[in-house]
């Protein structure tokens, strides 16, 4: 915590626009969640933005609990949540459940999915699942230095276009690309950038019909729900948390975002 201020002055950080607040999360304006596959550098990004010292390590599963920290950028105060790495949002181990529950019920204003640029395809699995739940997401294309060393090139503009959400290349360990990431977060939360996320297309016929059938009923019950299809899928998979959320009506909180946010802040 000693060198917290060291980098504040250097130009990469948009001339002091970023203020690392450590564990100070009073009166935050926005909540940002860091999701992503294991070992892609989420905790590194987290440390970078908050100035905290969340443990990082070169093996999948280093972070198993949720960590929170704060930062200030462009006069807005943010609460940042470092989540355990997950391969998917459909499985059920304890660490993955923490991540999933937060993205779903924590109602982050924006979810930053940290992605390993050297293994884009497998990481997109999670990105696409996140996009089924929320439409405010950013892809942080991390480990670009390693991708470069392996001669892997990624067409970020094409990726942005295909996913319908902003994509920011970074090298979190070297602080490269972090200012751009912050700028993008700012743009998304302030509504300057509107995401039009990609939605998963085909699956088997029987399933598609069942999903449509059920999604229709869900929409009737909870008008305006943006991810009725996903809720339908989860109901069909017997996900108890979603069943409970439907039963209690909590699921509609996804529409009444602001009301929930206040509740969540007081929890």
């Amino acid at each position: 915590m000693i060198d917290q201020n060291k980098c504040e002055a250097c130009p990469v950080h948009n001339a002091g626009n970023l203020k690392r607040l450590g564990i100070n999360m009073d009166k935050f304006d926005f909540v940002v969640a860091l999701a992503g596959n294991p070992n892609t550098g989420k905790s590194t990004v987290f440390n970078n933005l908050t100035g905290l010292k969340q443990h990082t390590g070169n093996w999948p599963g280093k972070t198993v609990t949720r960590a929170e920290g704060g930062f200030e950028f462009n006069k807005n105060r943010y609460k940042l949540i470092d989540l355990p790495g997950t391969y998917s949002l459909l499985s059920t181990s304890t660490d993955e459940e923490i991540a999933r529950d937060f993205i779903l019920f924590g109602q982050p204003d924006v979810t930053v999915v940290v992605v390993d640029a050297t293994r884009l395809e497998r990481n997109l699995n999670l990105v696409l699942q996140v996009l089924e739940i929320t439409d405010r997401a950013i892809v942080c294309l991390n480990l670009m230095d390693e991708a470069g060393r392996r001669n892997i090139e990624i067409d970020e503009r094409a990726l942005t276009r295909d996913l319908g959400i902003p994509v920011v290349p970074t090298e979190a360990r070297q602080d490269v690309g972090i200012p751009e990431l912050l700028k993008t977060v700012d743009d998304v939360v302030t509504g300057k950038l509107i995401c039009k996320p990609y939605r998963i297309t085909g699956s088997s016929k029987g399933l598609t019909k069942a999903v449509e059938n059920l999604a229709e009923k869900i929409k009737n019950e909870f008008p305006g729900l943006p991810n009725a299809r996903w809720v339908a899928l989860r109901l069909l998979d017997g996900d108890q948390k979603i069943i409970d959320a439907v039963r209690s009506g909590e699921i509609s909180g996804i529409v009444k975002r602001n009301a929930i946010e206040e509740n969540f802040a007081t929890v």
Binding site: T92, D237, G238, D239, Q240, I243
Partner: peptide, 8 residues
Amino acid sequence: AAQMGNPV
């Protein structure tokens, strides 16, 4: 049952 995703 809840923990296993309510198998049918």
